[in-house]
Amino acid sequence: GSPLAQQIKNIHSFIHQAKAAGRMDEVRTLQENLHQLMHEYFQQ
């Protein structure tokens, strides 16, 4: 897949890990990143 698709997959797993660790501030930051990446992805 594209590097962007790979990045989106990575962030999904980072979010999963951050949630499991209870780091909600990190989850929020990652979700904002994910949102931006998704936006770029669909602009392609």
Rank of each mutant, 00 (worst) to 15 (best):
G1H: 12
G1A: 11
G1I: 13
G1P: 11
G1F: 05
G1D: 12
G1W: 07
G1R: 06
S2V: 14
S2L: 14
S2P: 11
S2F: 11
S2W: 11
S2R: 06
S2E: 11
S2C: 14
S2Y: 10
P3S: 14
P3Q: 13
P3V: 12
P3C: 14
P3A: 14
P3T: 15
P3H: 13
L4G: 02
L4A: 03
L4C: 04
L4H: 03
L4T: 04
L4F: 06
A5L: 15
A5E: 12
A5F: 14
A5C: 15
A5S: 10
Q6Y: 05
Q6M: 09
Q6R: 05
Q6L: 11
Q7L: 13
Q7W: 10
Q7N: 04
Q7F: 05
Q7V: 09
Q7E: 08
I8Y: 02
I8F: 03
I8E: 00
I8G: 00
K9W: 09
K9S: 07
K9V: 06
K9Y: 08
K9R: 10
N10Q: 14
N10C: 12
N10G: 04
N10S: 08
N10A: 14
N10L: 15
I11E: 00
I11G: 00
I11M: 11
I11P: 00
I11D: 00
H12D: 02
H12L: 15
H12I: 15
H12S: 06
H12T: 09
S13P: 01
S13D: 13
S13K: 15
S13V: 13
S13A: 14
S13I: 15
S13T: 12
S13R: 15
S13H: 14
F14G: 06
F14E: 14
F14N: 09
I15A: 01
I15Y: 02
I15G: 00
I15S: 00
I15K: 01
I15D: 00
I15R: 00
I15T: 00
I15V: 02
I15F: 01
H16R: 14
H16T: 11
H16E: 15
H16D: 13
H16I: 12
H16S: 12
H16C: 09
Q17W: 06
Q17L: 10
Q17R: 08
Q17P: 01
Q17T: 08
Q17E: 13
Q17N: 07
A18F: 04
A18S: 03
A18T: 01
A18K: 02
A18Q: 02
A18L: 09
A18V: 03
K19Q: 13
K19Y: 12
K19E: 11
K19M: 15
K19L: 15
K19H: 09
K19W: 13
K19V: 12
K19N: 06
K19A: 13
A20N: 07
A20H: 05
A20C: 09
A20V: 09
A20I: 11
A21M: 05
A21G: 04
A21K: 04
A21S: 06
A21L: 08
A21D: 09
G22C: 03
G22N: 06
G22D: 04
G22K: 03
G22M: 04
G22E: 04
G22A: 03
G22S: 03
G22I: 02
R23T: 03
R23D: 09
R23H: 08
R23N: 12
R23M: 08
R23C: 04
M24Q: 06
M24E: 09
M24V: 08
M24A: 08
M24D: 09
M24R: 05
M24I: 08
M24Y: 14
D25I: 02
D25P: 02
D25S: 04
D25N: 05
D25L: 04
D25Y: 03
E26P: 01
E26V: 11
E26G: 01
E26Q: 06
E26N: 02
V27P: 01
V27F: 04
V27W: 03
V27I: 05
V27T: 02
V27R: 00
V27C: 03
V27L: 06
R28Y: 09
R28V: 09
R28A: 13
R28M: 09
R28D: 05
T29I: 13
T29L: 13
T29W: 11
T29P: 02
T29E: 12
L30V: 01
L30A: 05
L30C: 02
L30K: 01
Q31R: 11
Q31E: 12
Q31T: 13
Q31V: 12
Q31M: 15
Q31N: 05
Q31D: 03
Q31S: 07
E32G: 06
E32N: 08
E32T: 06
E32I: 10
E32R: 10
E32L: 10
E32F: 08
N33G: 07
N33F: 15
N33Q: 15
N33V: 15
N33T: 15
N33I: 15
L34T: 00
L34D: 00
L34E: 00
L34M: 04
L34R: 01
H35A: 15
H35K: 15
H35E: 13
H35T: 11
H35Q: 13
H35Y: 12
H35R: 15
H35W: 14
Q36N: 09
Q36H: 09
Q36P: 01
L37T: 01
L37W: 02
L37K: 03
L37F: 02
L37I: 06
M38E: 03
M38R: 03
M38Y: 12
M38Q: 04
M38C: 08
M38I: 12
M38V: 07
M38P: 00
H39Q: 14
H39I: 14
H39N: 11
H39C: 06
H39F: 11
H39Y: 12
H39R: 13
E40W: 10
E40Q: 12
Y41S: 04
Y41W: 13
Y41R: 03
Y41P: 01
Y41K: 03
Y41T: 03
Y41C: 12
F42I: 09
F42G: 06
F42Y: 12
F42S: 08
F42K: 08
F42A: 10
F42M: 11
F42W: 13
F42N: 08
Q43F: 08
Q43E: 09
Q43D: 07
Q43Y: 07
Q43V: 09
Q43K: 12
Q43W: 07
Q44I: 11
Q44N: 11
Q44W: 09
Q44V: 09
Q44Y: 11
Q44L: 12
